[in-house]
Nucleic acid binder design. Structure first.
Length: 265
DNA sequence: ATGGCTAAGCGTCTTAGA
């Protein structure tokens, strides 16, 4: 089974690439982030024509996540149970989970944080605490389980192209990395993909200042998996080819190949 | 050339992204 996560930066703008990439990559389960669409604007029908079911959480202009699967989509949970809202009580569309064939998976879009002294940063940390609480039971379970998505945190200094550029900025702070460590303490582990080019598996490159051609990237799209899921991993890589050219997202898909039995109908 | 941002909304700028 092939599972992937991809921040598409607008599913509407990315639709031609999304459909062709699904077909060419042979992905069975795709976790999407930054849909940037209203719920009725999600391309459910074009995906169904390719054989995929969809579970979508979206509210319009910002955020939005989905699970797209051709190996089953059961027990869907929309949103992050117990999660905080922003700017007030209402939750943003940042999480969806479901059972896809042999695995239970989440697609998450962790809040950006904006700046360290911004309310959005405190919200980011609260959101990550709620995520840890919500996944603890499944992380310790016997069934393959993983949280995939845009975590908006570089786990280590090597996960940004130049650490000095990030002094005093979000994505590299101790508190954010402690939140990732707390997630690992539930039993999850970072499935680090291999790069297809250069020496580090960056997953995001800023549109500005030739970020991609200069390989000024960050590894912030992560796969956090429990032990049964990790044991099934045969390969993992960043499909940086999808970042190339006109009409690309600023994130590349992270692809994981698993040796798991698919359900037969 | 992989190439000096991109996307959406009520929009001819503002907000957000990281």
């Amino acid at each position: 089974m092939r599972i992937a996560t991809w921040n598409v930066n607008s599913v509407t703008a990315r639709l031609p690439r999304l459909l062709s990439w699904l077909e060419s990559s042979g992905t069975d389960v795709l976790c999407l982030q930054e849909l940037k669409c209203a719920p009725e604007a999600f391309p459910t029908e074009p995906l169904r024509e390719l054989g995929y079911e969809s579970a979508v959480v979206a509210t319009g202009r910002w955020n939005g996540v989905a699970l797209v699967s051709r190996v089953g989509l059961e027990d869907v949970v929309l949103g992050l149970p117990g999660g905080p809202g922003y700017p007030q009580d209402e939750q943003e569309p940042r999480a969806v989970s479901a059972t896809c064939g042999p695995a239970r998976v989440w697609s998450v879009y962790v809040p950006n944080g904006r700046e360290v002294d911004h309310a959005h940063y405190a919200y980011k940390l609260r959101w990550l605490t709620a995520l840890r609480d919500a996944v603890t039971e499944d992380a310790q379970g016997l069934l393959p389980f993983a949280v995939l998505g845009d975590f908006n945190i570089a786990p280590a200094d090597a996960d940004v192209w130049d650490r000095s550029v990030f002094d005093g900025m979000t994505h590299v702070t101790e508190a954010e990395r402690a939140a990732l460590a707390a997630l690992r303490e539930t039993g999850l582990e970072d499935v680090v993909p291999r790069p297809l080019k250069y020496d580090h598996p960056f997953t995001y490159w800023d549109y500005r200042e030739l970020g991609f051609p200069k390989n000024r990237g960050m590894r912030i799209d992560l796969v956090y998996a429990n032990a049964p899921f990790q044991k099934a991993v045969k390969d993992a890589y960043v499909d940086r080819e999808e970042r190339r050219g006109k009409g690309a997202s600023d994130h590349a898909p992270v692809v994981v190949d698993l040796d798991l039995d698919l359900p037969h109908e």
